[in-house]
Amino acid sequence: MRIPLGSALVASALLLGTAAQAQTCTNRGQLDDAYCDENKDLVADVPAKTRDPSVLVFAYTPVEDPAVYENAFRPFTEYLSKCTGKRVVYYPVQSNSAEIEAMRSGRLHVAGFSTGPVGFAVNMAGAVPFAGKGTEKGIEGYHLIVLVKASSPYQKLSDLKGKRVAHTSPSSNSGGLAPKALFPDQGLKPGEDYQILFSGGHDKSALGVNSGDYDAAPVASDVFERMVARGDLKAENFRIIYRSERFPSSGFAYAHDLKPELAEKIKQCFYDFRFPSQMVKDFEGDDRFAPITYLKDWAVVRKVAEDSGTPFNKAAYQKELAREAEAAKKKAEGAKKP
């Protein structure tokens, strides 16, 4: 294939820029080679060349059907457009890795990432977390809860040995990493005492337990509560047999290479916004975006990832990509069958 001269020059410049950064960067931590962290705040530093896009692309973690959140965030995306003076487009991502890859490639500028994937977004895509949903008291939190049907015989985690237990995805905190770190102390080892089944989402896990496809599922408490509030599920149909300590909820981040003035404007727009009544209802009482830092607010999540043997590094991320590719392949093959 012939590569146009302009494209070749751009590619060469990018490679040279990356090589130069690799030689001059004295601290990178777990960040990908494309990024540097000289000030040691664990997120990518602002590069020499920055961007000021005319259109801002915004996304939110696909913990449920993306259409649910596109509607829920519409009052904010409309405000963000007026506040920044730029058109804002909502990008409905279908998976955690798709959202991370979109920011990594430069197609996504501002996004809310689920708790676990925040770490991969920071290290693999240069995301800079700066806000979380919350109230005047600070950012919201949630618990890892394990759902079983109320009619089932399961009363504690050790009762799930050999049963059908659904995780959401390997990179999810409550739906993947935290169970590996926390369940063994309760007498249950994921991957050993039961085969891990992946549902693809917290809502899918909860619906699967309700329908009998799974015997149990670890999910984020806030997602379950939203589903009950919307009438998607009836709380009385479930029993919660485990509840963890509190974790921070989704983190909002901007791409590290945005023009600093634009990044500061986006941050201020988030902090100044107050949720209208419908958004307060949709997000269980949260009424604003509160400031966060990855260094401080995600310390407990990083510890869970390390303790579970799945740190937020390139090797773990590549495994996540491979797993999702295999799942997509099987889904496509299944769709072809008559």
Rank of each mutant, 00 (worst) to 15 (best):
S205K: 05
F283D: 12
V63W: 06
N210A: 11
A220P: 02
F130D: 14
K296W: 08
A263F: 13
Y242K: 00
P4T: 07
V57A: 11
S205T: 13
A125E: 14
Q21M: 10
L14W: 08
P184T: 04
D65H: 05
A206W: 13
L197D: 06
V223Q: 03
A34W: 05
S97R: 10
Y242P: 08
Y214C: 01
D65C: 00
T293F: 00
P338T: 10
G85T: 13
G29Y: 13
L42N: 12
K86V: 09
K163M: 07
F224P: 01
D52A: 15
G309V: 00
D297K: 10
V304W: 14
D282N: 14
I145Q: 03
Y142N: 05
S158L: 02
C83D: 11
G126F: 10
A263K: 05
D65A: 09
L16D: 05
I139N: 00
N313A: 02
H167I: 00
M279D: 08
L5V: 14
P311V: 02
Q268T: 15
I196P: 02
E192N: 10
T293W: 01
T50Y: 11
A111R: 01
M1V: 13
K189C: 00
H202A: 08
A34M: 07
D37G: 06
T168W: 01
E136R: 03
I266H: 14
S169F: 01
A322K: 07
E284N: 15
Q318C: 03
P4Y: 06
A327D: 07
P66Y: 03
A299H: 11
Q23T: 12
V93M: 07
A20T: 09
V122P: 00
L15R: 04
L42W: 15
S171M: 11
L108A: 08
G119I: 02
V280Y: 01
R104S: 14
K330N: 09
A229P: 09
A20W: 06
H167W: 09
T26L: 09
Q268F: 06
Y69C: 02
D286L: 01
V57K: 14
G132V: 12
L147I: 03
A315V: 07
G134R: 00
L144V: 04
V43S: 08
S7N: 13
